[in-house]
Every structure is written in C-alpha cells, then in structure tokens.
Write a protein that binds this DNA or RNA. Structure first.
Lengths: 254, 254
DNA sequence: CAGCATTTGTGGTATAGTCCAAATATCGTT
DNA sequence: AACGATATTTGGACTATACCACAAATGCTG
C-alpha cells in the first residue's frame, strides 16, 4: 500500500507559501514522472485523498482539475481519476489513417461507428462543404480508441450524390481508403483547423467524460482530384491524448 | 442525433436540472455572441456577479473558469475577467512572420524582447538542437502581442557559432528575416509539435496571467539549407487567441 | 501638485459542510 | 453460479464563510 501524504517533518523545509493544491499537484506529478504511478492507474477517491493530505475535498478537486488541464490525469464520468497514458504523435496533414498511425507507435487502435444517416445539409454544413443548403449528405459519427480508451469523436460529412450507397459499406475503416477504392475519389489536399476548447454536451457523452473537460477541436475539409470539397470532418480530441506534429517544407508562395 | 454546435437559446428551458454555473455560462455566451458584450469588455467583479445571479462566488468562479477553458473569456492576473477577442488564424507551417500574419488580419502586432543571453546548452536543448551539451547558444525570450494583448511568449534557441554577434541586432523583428539577411541562413524545413496544456509559472508571469490557465504549447525546430537544425523555438500561446490552420497538400510518401 | 502612504476592493486560496444521482459493491434468492 | 434488488460509495454541484496578497483608488503630506 502506497502512502500518499507528505510526512509532516518535510513540510517545514518547503513551507514557503506554496498553495496546497500545488503541492498536491507536485506530489503526483513527481510520482507519475518517476513511474510510481503507471498510466491508467486509478487515483484514490477524492474523499480519501482529502483525508490523506489533510485538505478539503474542494481543494483536492481544484488540484485534480488543474492536473487534468495539464494532461497529467484524466477522468471518466463519475468513475474517477486516472493517470494519462503517453500521448500519441499524430500528423493531420498526412493521409495516414488514425489506425495506421496508432499501430505504428505500438498501441492498439479501435473504431466504433456510433451512428450513420442520410440527412439534408444544414446551413453551416452546406457552407463549409460547398453544396446547396438542403442537399443530401451522409453524416457518420465515429468513436476512436487507443488501447481501449476513447480519445476522439468525429463527425464525418460526405456529399451523398458522390458516394451512392456509402452507408452500406463497413464504416469502421479508413474513410480515405473507402472513398478511393469504391468511388475513385482521391484526396488531393485538405484544409485543417485546430483550436483548444472544451467538450460540449454530446461529444463529451460519446467519449464518456464530463462535459467541460479540455479538448482539442480539429476540423478538416478534404478536396478531391476535381478540386471539389467532398468531405468535412469535425473531430473532438481528448486534449491529453495527442501530440500534433506537422512538417513545414520550404517556403510556400503566398 | 448528436449536436456539435454550441447550445445557445435553444436549450430546453423546461429542463430545470441545468446546473447554475451552466446557466450562467449560457447567459454570457449568448451576450458575447450577440455582441452585447464586446471583446475586451471587463466583466463585473466576482462578488457582484454572485449577487446578481443569487449564487455563491465559488459557483461564479466555476462558471468563469469553464468559460475561460472554452475560450470565451480570459483573465489578467488579479485584475479581472474580460471577453476574448476573436482568434487570429495562424499557419505555423508557412514562414510568414507573426507580425505579417496578424497585420493581414487587420490587427496590430507587437513584439517585446524580454531577455537575450549567450549560454551553454542544457542537456535537453543540445539534444533537440543537435549540438554538443555545453555548446554555446543564444537564448532570446520574446513576448508577442495582438492589439496590445499579450498572446504568446516564445523562447528562441539558436546555435551561437552560426550567428556571431546575433544579439547586437534588433531582435524585435522576424527571426527568419534576420537569419536570412545577416547570416545567409535559409529555413528549408521545420518540424512543429503542438499540444494543449497549461501555463507554467514563468511563462504565465511573462504573459501577465495566472499560472495554470489553459494554453497551447508549440515547439518548432528549424532546419537550414545544409540540413542542420539551427533554431529551436518554444512557444506558449494563450489558448483562446489562436486558430491554427494548416494545409495538407496531396499524399506524402511514407 | 507631485510623491508617498494608506485604505479599499478584488481575485486567489482554503475550510467545512450538504444534497443528489450515478456507479459500484453487497447480499439474498433462485 | 447467475441474477436482481438493495445498500454504499463516489463524483458533481452548491452554500456560506474566511483570510491573504496584490492592484487600484484614495488620502495625506511636503
């Protein structure tokens, strides 16, 4: 059994007005870094932590939320707090699939189709997909996992007219491959936008986390060989799961 | 059907189980969206807000911190809460300078050199800069502002032997231009990594914000025409200031 | 009227609880 | 051993305060 609290004697030496919740953070950050706490390990309950450190549960939560924002730990809704696994490197500019990328880094990727449907494009979608408002599109919601942990939800929008019968295909594979093999659509280029934000109600629920936890929002609009936008992909990433890397090659004329 | 867009007034008013801090958030989110609250407007004090909404200051802070994570508002250390200005689009893969990029979007960019020194490379830096541990390097700390608001701190590491007398030049301009004009160093390519995290003590102080506020960490290692890493750039961005965009052109062989 | 000291207001930290709903563990029955 | 009802634990939300440190406003003084 591990001892979580700091011995009282040591407290004197660094008793320099460091807030409790920072000490708490430092304590666990050190344990995580040292490997005393392994990835996916569950922390004790908030009440137990509060007692061990002789602080209030409110203060414990303040520290935990801070550590979550740092990417040290994560939570599963109403289940508790866990140590974050290492981030995966992900290059959104290559066409390399999520699955391939994750596998190459020695992790296990999973894909779960949450829903698929044929609907009429909303105003926002039609604008960004470059089609008439009300045009028919496919919307596919998928959940992606790494080593069993849900790390991203994505909502894929595809013009229906370009891909008849798309939803009859297995949808837990790479969309790039599917569009290429079945419909001869080649991804020529893509415009990617990213910004840190928090998880909204629905994506949070899909990820099994509390709404309001930090996340990385990534949108990708994909252009085919005819210079037409054919796919719009909206992704919410668990912010502690990803390390985005892109290569900038030479000077692009602008 | 999953809803990905931000809930506004469409939230079900008949659902009485919406937490106070979410209602508070929705109220101000609507005001900000409607333009009733303009960018950089200061919110009332936490105590005043608590009284106005008949909730505790603790709950008010919970809501404010949530809104900060969303990027709706930001705070200046011990000064209060303010409405976030629009994000600027920033493409880290182009060599376009910060100043140029900001100016093109009709905003005013500023650069402040915080410190400049010639030191010996630490183990970590030498590893990432590709030089011997203890080799001499320049470290330049700069603060970047948009419309007067500090949005990013950067720490630039440059091999000293390649750029004699670098620190004697004006350092509030584009490093790319300076290296090119004075030392004939051309940025051939760069490797960029990004991840959401929080501001640590020092960068937070430089930005004038509370340590622990969300941020985007961006590192850039720049390779010259001789395929040698000559610059290592570490950046902490205010997470609500930036909308990162990159273009993925065609398929890269891998 | 400039410059310095003091007060006041504000955000940051922290306590000590309560209530609730969901998740987990327990236990008895088939 | 499997299952379902029940009790317990846990995280999420919230109240009501308190104290401190710092920033801005205020007042005092030379």
């Amino acid at each position: 059994m591990l001892h979580w609290s700091i011995p009282d004697d040591t407290r004197k030496s660094w008793d320099r007005k460091i807030p409790y919740y920072i000490r708490f953070r430092d304590h666990f950050a050190a344990m995580i870094k040292a490997g005393t706490l392994l990835p996916n390990a569950k922390l004790p309950s908030e009440r137990a932590l509060a007692e061990d450190f002789s602080i209030t549960r409110v203060t414990v939560r303040q520290a935990l939320i801070r550590m979550e924002a740092e990417g040290l730990i994560f939570r599963e809704k109403r289940r508790g707090w866990f140590v974050s696994p290492p981030r995966i490197l992900y290059d959104p500019t290559t066409n390399a699939s999520f699955t391939k990328s994750v596998t190459e880094q020695g992790r296990v990727a999973g894909t779960l189709v949450l829903s698929k449907q044929r609907v009429m494009a909303s105003a926002w979608v039609s604008e960004n997909l470059g089609c008439a408002p009300g045009a028919e599109i496919f919307i596919i919601n998928r959940l992606r996992t790494i080593d069993g942990r849900a790390v991203l939800v994505e909502q894929i929008h595809i013009k229906a007219e370009r891909c008849p019968g798309l939803l009859e295909n297995p949808l837990d594979q790479s969309m790039t491959d599917l569009l290429s093999e079945k419909y001869g659509i080649v991804e020529r280029r893509a415009q990617i936008n990213m910004r840190p934000t928090v998880l909204l109600e629905d994506p949070a629920h899909a990820l099994g986390v509390t709404a309001g936890t930090p996340s990385l929002y990534l949108s990708r609009s994909i252009v085919d060989q005819y210079n037409e936008v054919i796919e719009l992909d909206l992704e919410f990433w668990r912010h502690d799961a990803i390390d985005i890397c892109v290569a900038a090659t030479g000077k692009t004329a602008d």
